[in-house]
Simulated scan of single mutants.
Amino acid sequence: MTSRVTFISPAMNAALRQARFDDGRTPLDTTGAAQAAAAAGTLPSPARVLTSPSSRCQETAEALGLLGPAVPELAALDVGRWRGRSLDEVSAAEPEPVGRWLTDPGCAPHGGESVRDLCDRVARWLTTAQDLDGRTLAVVEPEIVRAAVLHALGMPAAAFWRLDVAPLTATELSGRAGRWNLRLGRPLAAPDTD
């Protein structure tokens, strides 16, 4: 059996625009909601839809016309006491801890989850996803997409910050027997009518 998981990154919201650690409750902004609504109907029919628990992922799924439960294993990276603050603010107040966090995937100076822990959590979820029949669409935070790509390619957690995930893109994994194939960052866009 071949499993297919398509990860959809969420549309824009104020936290993404301001490079702020989202608290999970920031809604989509007007532009992000409109772009997600315009992309509705561009995805293949899934056997199941899952989302990260954040507002922006759930609102993106809804705007895309997708309904499915929030899955705790697909939650955003827990950044502890940095939640709600901008990267610039945290970097100014805690330059050394931020530097360690960006270079050492096992480090969690914010008191939350390390990048390595996140990658391990997503890898465990992908192991169970290989047993799912049919296509899974998962509207998830960009860091979940990064962790899934690292796992699929067998890359070290140290490469986590080297991957950019654009809003409203699809990253597709297909595989079986512990091996994944990858299709990166297809933009969600309304089909051409020409």
Results as ranks from 00 to 15, higher is better:
Arg124Val: 15
Leu188Ser: 04
Arg135Trp: 07
Arg56Val: 14
Thr30Glu: 15
Leu188Val: 06
Leu150Gln: 04
Met12Pro: 13
Ala61Phe: 09
Arg4Cys: 10
Pro69Phe: 02
Thr103Ile: 02
Thr60Trp: 11
Gly24Asp: 12
Pro191Asn: 10
Val115Pro: 05
Pro142Leu: 02
Gly41Tyr: 09
Arg179Lys: 14
Leu150Arg: 05
Ala19Ser: 14
Leu50Asn: 05
Gly154Lys: 05
Leu67Asp: 12
Ala138Val: 11
Leu182Lys: 12
Pro142Gln: 08
Val115Glu: 03
Ala39Trp: 11
Gly134Glu: 00
Phe160Glu: 05
Arg20Glu: 10
Arg146Ser: 05
Arg25Glu: 14
Trp161Leu: 12
Ser9Ile: 00
Val98Pro: 01
Val140Arg: 02
Trp125Arg: 13
Trp101Arg: 00
Ala19Leu: 12
Leu126Gln: 03
Ala15Arg: 00
Ala93Arg: 00
Thr51Ala: 08
Ala61Cys: 08
Asn181Gln: 14
Val49Lys: 01
Ala36Trp: 12
Pro109Ala: 10
Gln18Phe: 02
Pro187Asp: 06
Gly24Met: 13
Gly32Ala: 12
Glu113Gln: 12
Gly185Gln: 15
Ser54Ala: 15
Leu132Val: 15
Arg25Val: 14
Thr30Lys: 08
Asp22Gln: 07
Pro27Gly: 09
Pro187Met: 00
Thr42Tyr: 02
Asp164Trp: 08
Val165Gly: 14
Asp192His: 11
Pro72Ala: 15
Arg4Asn: 01
Thr26Glu: 14
Trp82Met: 10
Arg162Met: 09
Arg48Phe: 00
Ala34Asn: 07
Cys107Tyr: 06
Cys107Asp: 15
Arg25Ala: 15
Gln58Ala: 14
Val115Ala: 01
Leu168Thr: 04
Leu102Met: 15
Val115His: 07
Arg162Gly: 11
Leu182Arg: 13
Arg179Glu: 13
Pro167Lys: 04
Gln35Val: 00
Leu50Ala: 11
Ala39Phe: 10
Ala92Lys: 10
Ser174Leu: 02
Phe21Met: 02
Pro27Lys: 10
Ala47Pro: 02
Thr169Tyr: 06
Pro72Phe: 03
Val115Leu: 07
Ser52Arg: 02
Val165Glu: 13
Leu168Tyr: 06
Pro142Met: 02
Ala75Met: 01
Ala129Ser: 07
Asp120Ile: 08
Ala157His: 09
Gly32Ser: 07
Leu163Ser: 07
Arg162Asn: 15
Ala63Trp: 05
Arg100Asn: 03
Pro167Tyr: 01
Asp120Met: 07
Pro44Trp: 03
Phe160Thr: 09
Val139Tyr: 01
Gly68Ser: 06
Leu77Arg: 04
Gly175Arg: 04
Ala36Arg: 02
Asp117Val: 11
Gly178Met: 03
Val165Lys: 15
Thr136Arg: 04
Leu137Trp: 03
Pro187Gln: 03
Arg121Asp: 00
Thr171Gly: 06
Thr30Trp: 05
Ala70His: 04
Thr136Ser: 11
Trp161Lys: 11
Ser91Gln: 12
Ala190Met: 06
Thr127Met: 03
Val90Met: 12
Ala147Asn: 09
Ala158Phe: 03
Thr42Met: 01
Leu184Asp: 13
